[in-house]
């Protein structure tokens, strides 16, 4: 099974995950400060800064793009409840 390394810099922890894992599946279990609201990609609460490995994430959906735009998110920001880690190394911190 393809795997990836997902690092949460605010708690200094790297988790080896299967490709396709969403950030939301891990971040709460390890105590990262990434927070969630609707958990369905609508509210923008879980905007997360991608410190490294943007290219290793799934492409944002039209809904995610709209929510990021409405919330004035930066180019390195994604919704933790939506994006999947596809491989390689990804480092994130709360947005």
């Amino acid at each position: 099974m393809a795997t990836a390394k997902l690092t949460f810099t605010d708690v200094a922890l790297t988790v080896n995950v299967p490709a396709g894992t969403r950030i939301i599946e891990i971040s709460e279990k390890i105590g990262s400060g990434i927070t969630y609201g609707c958990r369905e990609g609508e509210c923008g609460t879980c905007i997360t800064r991608i410190v490294e490995g943007q290219e290793n994430l799934s492409e944002p959906s039209a809904l995610e793009l709209r929510v990021l735009k409405d919330n004035l998110a930066g180019h390195n920001d994604r919704l933790a409840c939506q994006c999947q880690v596809l491989g390689g190394t990804v480092k994130v911190r709360p947005g």
Partner: peptide, 11 residues
Amino acid sequence: PAEREIDMSAL
């Protein structure tokens, strides 16, 4: 902090 690495199964 000391950097740590774990497998998802540990969660």
